[in-house]
């Protein structure tokens, strides 16, 4: 079994979320003997070279044909296998949306669809490869469990959780390479149960994926400015941890942070939930807004969208001022 020791945590972080997936995959046949892995010309990119060498009869590269990959995965699932299928998050969610709807949503087949480089991780390739809508698409499809790990440690954990969970899963991998470390060792990863990483009473910051790290840094800045800030790692976006959201309704402000469009993402999920509560504070949704950005480096794209800790901190301070 994979050890969640500090050396591995550092290695996974250096490899980034795709490489961490490949490392976790090496252990999958041990976690679940029925696991097979499919990819669409992204074997190397998904860190699966060692997996292919070790388990050649469990790795299927279908070429640049993502829709067919989901179809092939459905076939494997029907035959009792547990297929993991990898491609860029943009293609997994948008190009394959109908195959996902029919095979994962409608038929409920236990396909584990891995959306690589969600958000801006391959922003250098331009808008075609940015994935700012995948959460919105997947949230709209019933039956699909949507996991969005905060770092590479949580990614390895999420892969293991996905392998043992009975239904269809969309695993959203995000963040730069190297990937900032949130979890220095083994971490809790229970589907539908968010991790509270920092306690606070004024503001509740609910973040997901790569933005958890930025949220924690922003919380430190807020604490310095006298704002007691709670940080929640919402690693499961569907089903959402409603208890945590209900609890956050007791704060002065709820902030959601995601490397995704504010339309249909984590912010929307939280908004839909709190709209049903009798009393709730204002909600500040931090994420991508408006048009597709031009191609750029990860750091530049994040800053441009105000998704870095400093920008998040400023937005929260401004919001708190506006309210009073």
């Amino acid at each position: 079994m994979i050890a969640f020791n500090s050396m591995n945590v550092r290695i996974w972080s250096m490899l980034g979320s795709c490489g961490a997936f490949g490392q976790a995959a090496l252990d999958l046949p041990e976690v679940n003997d029925r696991v097979v892995v499919l990819t669409s010309d992204l074997c190397v990119f998904s860190g699966l070279e060692r997996f292919r060498a070790k388990f050649p009869d469990r790795l299927y590269n279908v070429g640049i044909a993502e829709q067919n990959m989901v179809g092939v995965a459905a076939g494997f699932a029907k035959e009792g296998f547990v297929p993991f299928a990898t491609t860029y998050a943009a293609f997994a969610s948008m190009r394959c949306a109908d195959q996902v709807k029919v095979n994962m949503g409608y038929m409920g087949l236990p396909i584990k669809l891995v959306g690589l480089t969600a958000g801006f991780a391959v922003g250098a390739l331009g808008a075609t490869h940015m994935s700012l809508e995948d959460v919105a698409v997947m949230r709209a499809i019933p039956n699909v469990t949507l996991l969005s790990p905060a770092d590479c440690t949580a990614t390895v954990k999420a892969v293991q959780v996905a392998a043992t969970c009975p239904g269809p899963v969309y695993l959203r991998l995000s963040g730069p390479m190297p990937n900032p470390i949130v979890y220095k060792g083994d971490c809790p990863f229970e589907i539908g149960r968010a991790n509270t990483l920092r306690d606070g009473t004024d503001v509740s910051v609910i973040a997901t994926g790569s933005m958890v790290y930025q949220a924690l840094k922003a919380a430190e800045l807020l604490e310095g400015a006298g704002v007691s800030t709670e940080v929640i790692d919402m690693h499961t976006i569907q089903p959402l941890d409603e208890d945590v959201v209900n609890r956050a309704c007791g704060r002065k402000l709820i902030v959601t942070v995601e490397e995704h469009s504010v339309v249909g993402g984590l912010g929307s999920a939280v908004a839909e939930r709190i709209a049903c509560c009798v009393r709730h504070p204002r909600l500040l949704m931090v994420g991508h807004e408006g048009r597709y950005p031009l191609a750029g480096s990860y750091g530049d794209l994040i800053r441009q969208d105000g998704l870095d800790a400093e920008s998040i901190y400023k937005k929260v301070i401004q919001h708190l001022k506006e309210k009073t």
Binding site: S40, D41, V62, G63, I64, A65, Q67, N68
Partner: peptide
């Protein structure tokens, strides 16, 4: 691209 011709 010739690889692109994999796409349906």
């Amino acid at each position: 691209g010739d690889g692109e011709c994999d796409e349906g």
